[in-house]
């Protein structure tokens, strides 16, 4: 069928314009209004706002808590990427390659945390970490490691590392499924060929599986990085509210505290701009670092 130019453009406009309008309302407008408010001294609770130029940005650079929140965020990014990718890859390979009979059951069990709200996960783990009746401390006592027990979330040293475990636990399932999809797309003949050439399981994993699921791994890593930078706020807010003494504040939770607890909405918006800029830089950097030619055998 031959389409006239006009028909073609009408159809394209029909597809694109509504999406673009939605995108503009729900993404571009908040983005620009966030940027706009970052130049104001505004409590966020009334109409009074005062234009202060880059005052909030100057404050951002002089705020001693900000560098810590950035470090905490990237600590979570690094530990989560390593933890989730290693475990998800391990489970994915195990469930697809090792021909375990109960594979479907495990698939569901591992995916389970993903259908739970992060808030529920946070509350659940707060109980697990509870110093007096929590599972972890009682477990340690049970196996005779009483000296290891501590108020996990109540300690300035241990609170942040304690947040890693629930984050990893909650993240494995989704990425495991993504990787399983990738692995099952790898043709069996490659493994047969590798076996004939004398490759053992490890070599098959490193030389066949890994290069062929690299696109999935790359997307998973990017996704973990982005969701951590934007979303670790929830688990922090639920489990520690940034405390004790700011030792678990990430950029998002500090933004929330400034905007809605301390009534510095303008400054909160400034922190939001910082999160945006850092996320963009991180993603671009990762894209560059993980660039790798597509492998085809």
């Amino acid at each position: 069928m031959v389409q006239s130019k006009k028909q073609k453009y009408t159809f394209l406009a029909f597809c694109l314009v509504p999406t673009f309008i939605m995108f503009a309302i729900f993404t571009l407008y908040p983005l620009f209004s966030g940027l706009y408010y970052s130049f104001f001294n505004w409590s966020g609770s009334s109409q009074n706002k005062e234009f202060i130029g880059i005052g909030n940005y100057i404050r951002l650079f002089n705020d001693a808590i900000i560098p810590n929140t950035i470090i905490h965020d990237y600590f979570l990014v690094v530990t989560k990427v390593i933890g989730i990718m290693v475990l998800a890859l391990f489970f994915a390979v195990a469930l697809t390659q090792l021909k375990i009979k109960e594979a479907p059951f495990y698939r569901i069990v591992f995916f389970f945390p993903n259908i739970m709200s992060v808030v529920v996960i946070g509350i659940l783990w707060t109980f697990i970490y509870n110093p007096s009746m929590g599972l972890i401390n009682s477990g340690l006592e049970f196996i005779g490691l009483e000296s290891w027990t501590r108020p996990w979330l109540g300690s300035e040293t241990w609170a942040l590392p304690s947040l890693v475990l629930p984050s990893i636990w909650a993240g494995i399932g989704l990425f495991m499924l993504m990787l399983m999809g990738g692995i099952s797309n790898v043709s069996k003949s490659y493994y047969e060929a590798a076996e004939i050439d004398g490759a053992n399981q490890w070599q098959q994993f490193w030389k066949v599986t890994l290069p062929l699921v690299w696109p999935q791994i790359k997307i998973s890593i990017l996704y973990i990085v982005i969701t951590t930078l934007n979303g670790s706020f929830v688990i922090v807010q639920v489990m520690t509210a940034g405390g004790p003494n700011n030792s678990t504040h990430v950029m998002g939770s500090y933004l929330y505290q400034q905007a809605f607890v301390q009534y510095n909405f303008g400054y909160g918006a400034t922190i939001g701009v910082m999160i945006l800029v850092l996320s963009l830089i991180t993603v671009l950097l990762l894209q560059f670092l993980m660039r790798r030619d597509k492998v085809e055998y």
Binding site: N130, P131, W152, G154, E156, A159, T240, G243
Partner: peptide, 11 residues
């Protein structure tokens, strides 16, 4: 209380 750092007010 040695664990108070983590407690919210209800706890």
């Amino acid at each position: 209380d040695s664990g108070l750092g983590a407690l919210n007010h209800t706890q």
